[in-house]
Design a protein around this nucleic acid. Structure first.
Length: 311
DNA sequence: AACCAGGAAACCG
DNA sequence: CGGTTTCATGGT
């Protein structure tokens, strides 16, 4: 059932949903090139079945707690609209009820205050497997600011520019485009050699359909998906769990060694030292089977000002 | 100007 | 196996 009036589609949202928290997450980097946030609206372009879809995603008026998609460039046809709507629902995580997460973790000494602050936030995803893998590999072992710059260089060099509705939009490169490159091409963008080789290797696997999101989701469980991912050279446990969080949508995926996670925990505990892996594992056990949401909420808390040490 | 950043592979005992 | 080193570049 698509609730559509003219060029506007109304998306129903789960209980406790806060679009503002999604906006804050989506707007955290100036270097983000695959969407823009302006005036509490997200601008995003997709290409679906060869048709460009230009969208302005904002808060609804009827009902007020809904999310709306405005199609900015004519009518792309019903099938495409349906797929675009499904993409946005998945991207913004509009079909997840977090009641059990809040009930199970709301009193947790580390996570409780974070849930209190960010209640209504959903896990912003990366629906495309290729894009998710590229973003995650790009971000291995470097700060987020540089990761965004690498992504932007990749998109500007090999993605697609779209003009429409008075602005320029960028589409993430097709796997087939990256599959035809040599590592030197990506090293020129300042990807390391191993990252460059991994991206091209993965692009080729995806272009030949030896690797797909559907295939990973059809495995017997997420453990099998993790093994399938880590069997690819260049993908370790951190990358596999990150992709399971943000693309395969395993609510319990857990990037145990993630530095951002460790820093968020350290800050919430008011400590100067990061927690040991054992401590992180023990906390994770308390958050299961919601460790992906726990991680995402803790990441969000990293944008808060750091309290002054001492005093 | 060290030290670190939302790691992975190779290496080594 | 489990710990250690290497890779590689930019931010703070």
């Amino acid at each position: 059932m698509l609730k559509r009036t003219g060029n506007t589609i109304v998306l129903e949202t789960p209980a406790d949903y806060q679009f503002g928290e999604a906006l804050a997450y989506l707007n955290r980097s100036e270097s983000e090139c695959l969407h823009q946030v302006e005036d509490r609206t997200v601008y995003k372009a997709l290409e679906i079945d060869g048709v460009k879809v230009l969208m302005a995603i904002g808060m609804g008026e009827d009902p007020e707690d809904s999310v709306t998609i405005r199609l900015l460039d004519g009518d792309p046809g019903e099938t495409v609209v349906r797929k675009a709507t499904a993409y946005v629902r998945e991207w913004l995580d509009l079909d997840t009820d977090l009641g059990n997460f809040y009930a199970a973790c709301g009193a947790d000494p580390v996570l409780g205050p974070v849930i209190e602050r960010y209640k209504g936030l959903r896990l912003i995803g990366v629906p495309s497997l290729f894009e998710a893998l590229c973003w995650t590999i790009a971000g291995q072992q470097i700060n987020l600011a540089f990761a965004y710059i690498l992504k932007k260089r990749l998109v500007e060099a090999y993605g697609t520019r779209v003009q429409g509705a008075g602005r320029e939009w960028l589409l993430f490169p097709e796997a087939g485009r990256i599959a035809s490159l040599e590592p030197e091409n990506l090293q020129g963008l300042k990807f390391t050699r191993s990252k460059s080789e991994a991206l091209i290797r993965i692009a080729r696997l995806i272009a030949t359909k030896e690797l797909s999101k559907e295939q990973l989701l059809n495995l017997k469980d997420f453990r099998a998906a993790e093994e399938a991912l880590t069997s690819i050279r260049g993908i370790g446990p951190w990358t596999a769990n990150y992709v399971m969080m943000r693309c395969l949508r395993n609510p319990d995926a857990f990037p145990l060694t993630d530095v951002g996670l460790h820093n968020a925990i350290r800050r919430k505990l008011g400590q100067t030292e990061k927690p040991s892996l054992r401590e992180v594992e023990e906390m994770g056990a308390r958050w299961a089977p919601w460790r992906a949401y726990a991680t995402f909420y803790l990441w969000s808390s990293l944008t808060e000002a750091v309290p002054e040490p001492g005093r």
